[in-house]
Amino acid sequence: MKPIQPIKKNWYHYLWIWSVFYFAMGFFNILFAWLGLISFCLPFIFAFGYGTKDFCNRYCDRGQLLRVLGGQVGLSKGVLMPSWIRSSWFRYGFLAFFMTMFGQMLYTTYLVASGIKELSETVTLFWSIRVPWEWAYTAGSVEPWQAQFAFGLYSLMLTSAIIGIVLMLLYKPRSWCAVCPMGTMTQMICKLRNKE
C-alpha cells in the first residue's frame, strides 16, 4: 500500500524497537522472554486503571511494529481482511483458543515445577512445531520451571508475532489488532468499566 505516516510523530512511535529487541534477546538467552509479561500486564493496567485502550492506541510495541512495516515501509498490501476473520465470533473464538493455549502453557510449567515433566528446551511454533532452542539456555542457571515458562511465553509471543506479520503482509498493516486477544480483552474491560 501507499506509505501512510502518523500525523504527529511521538516517542511511542518508536516502541517497535522493543519488539525487535525482545525477540533478538530471546534468541540468545531465553530467560529474557520473561520480559514479555510487561506486554501482558500493561494493557490491563490501562484498561482496569484508566478505562482506556491507551496501550493499544499508543504504547503497544507490536502494534507499532506492524504499523511501521506495513504502513510506513509499505510492505502491506493494504486490503481489508475477509469478513469472517473480522467477525465477532472469530475474534472471541480466537480469544478462547489463545487463552486455552496460555492455560496449557501454565500447566506445563506446573508439571515441570512439580517434577512430573522434564524441561523441554524447545520453542513451539503454532502450538505444534517444536523448534530446538537449547543454545539459548544454560542448564541449571535457574529453576527448570522458570526456564520452561520462558520457553512457553516466547513460543506464544513468536507465534502471534508471525501471525501478525503474515496478516500485515496480506492485508492492512494492523490487521492483527482486529483479532489480538489482548486487544479484545481490554476492549471488553473498557466497555464494562465505562458502561453508561
Binding site: 501512510i4 505516516q5 502518523p6 500525523i7 490501562f46 484498561a47 478505562g51 482506556t52 485502550k53 491507551d54 493499544c56 492506541n57 499508543r58 502494534g63 504499523r67 475474534r91 498493516p173 494492523r174 489488532c177 482486529a178 486487544g183 479484545t184 481490554t186 476492549q187 474491560i189 473498557c190 466497555k191 465505562n194
Partner: peptide, 22 residues
C-alpha cells in the same frame, strides 16, 4: 470497531478519536 487507535493516529484534523477504549 476494535479500538486499536489506527484512525486517530493518521487523522490530519483530530476528528477521529477513540472514546474510552470502546
Amino acid at each position: 470497531y476494535v479500538a486499536c487507535g489506527s484512525c486517530e493516529d493518521v487523522c490530519p484534523k483530530g476528528a477521529a478519536r477513540v472514546i474510552r477504549g470502546s
